[in-house]
Every structure is written in structure tokens, then in C-alpha cells.
């Protein structure tokens, strides 16, 4: 009897890939899915579950299903991908310096003159003219 393709193994691996890449492509855009990547972790669980079912079939009913080799390889790859994802999003993102010298609430904001996108000088005092307030957003740049 011809053995059947072990679809669970392959679909599980695709779900793991989807889980890893969808963060940067989609879920980083929304604060609720960006600050903690719960959608991606759920997708990892789903992919892992499918892989587990696939492996059980491959080893439990080897006369019916293929996937002993591919299942092990794809599961190992999935573990590497999940490990890298978690290292990137839970390890690497924590390396920020402490900003101990930043002005706190009630302190005077240091004045500045900086160029805008057209090279025109912009002063902090200019931004605050006419009783306006300003939100200064420092960002990393360099993408």
C-alpha cells in the first residue's frame, strides 16, 4: 500500500514560518500586538501542535503515513525559528541604556536649535511660541 503524505507536518511548519515573519510584516504595526507578540506566540503553539500530530502519525502508523525524516527535520527547524524569534523579541529588545540623566517632570527642558527636513533651523523656544506645548519624540533612526 502506498503511504500517504503527512500533511500535518508540512502545514505545521508553514504555520511556524508564518508566525515568525508576520510580526515584522503585520503585527508590529499595532501597539496591542507589538508590545507583546501574543498573536505570534499563539501561532507558534498552533504550528507546534500540528507538527506534533504529524510526528505521532509518522511514528505511530508508519505503514500509513510518511514523514519520519521530514517531520524530524521540520520540527528541528521550527524549534530553531521559535528560539531565534524569542531571542530577538525578548532578549535583544532589552538592551537599552538607562537614561538616568534625562530631565524628569518639573525640570527645565534643555533648549536646542536643530535642522528640519528642509535644513531650516528650528528652536525649542520657536516650537513653544503662542502658548503651545510640544511632545519631543526621540527615536533611533537608521533603518
Amino acid at each position: 500500500m502506498k503511504r500517504r503524505w503527512n500533511l500535518f507536518v508540512w502545514i505545521g511548519f508553514v504555520v511556524v514560518l508564518l508566525a515568525a515573519f508576520s510580526y515584522a510584516l503585520v503585527f508590529i504595526r499595532f501597539p496591542v500586538t507589538r508590545d507583546f507578540p501574543w498573536v505570534n506566540l499563539l501561532l507558534f503553539v498552533a504550528g507546534g501542535g500540528l507538527l506534533a500530530i504529524g510526528l505521532r502519525r509518522a511514528f505511530g502508523q508508519p505503514e500509513r503515513y510518511r514523514g519520519k525524516v521530514s517531520g524530524v527535520i521540520l520540527s528541528a527547524l521550527s524549534l530553531v525559528i521559535i528560539g531565534l524569534f524569542c531571542y530577538g523579541l525578548f532578549g535583544l529588545t532589552k538592551g537599552l541604556p538607562s537614561a538616568a540623566n534625562a530631565p524628569r517632570g518639573g525640570m527645565q527642558a534643555p533648549g536646542f536649535t536643530l535642522s528640519d527636513v528642509n535644513g531650516k533651523p528650528v528652536m525649542l523656544s520657536g516650537l513653544l511660541k503662542n502658548n503651545r506645548a510640544v511632545l519631543l519624540i526621540f527615536y533611533r533612526g537608521y533603518w
Binding site: I28, R34, D35, P37, L89, L92, T93, K94, G95, L96, P97, S98, A99, A102, P103, R104, G105, G106, M107, Q108, A109, G111, L124, S125, L128, N131, R132, A133, V134, L135, L136, I137, F138, Y139, R140
Partner: peptide, 23 residues
């Protein structure tokens, strides 16, 4: 590093946010 400062019309910092996590 990421950081936000809310400065009022007198040049005083009224609120700030200094995350310890890039994401």
C-alpha cells in the same frame, strides 16, 4: 534610545516616558 518628553509653553518637562524595551 526611544524616549518622549512633553514640554509645556514655559519650557518645563511635564511628562516623560523612557521605555526599557525597544518593542
Amino acid at each position: 534610545r526611544p524616549g518622549e518628553f512633553l514640554v509645556d509653553a514655559t519650557g518645563t518637562v511635564r511628562w516623560f516616558d523612557l521605555t526599557d524595551d525597544v518593542k
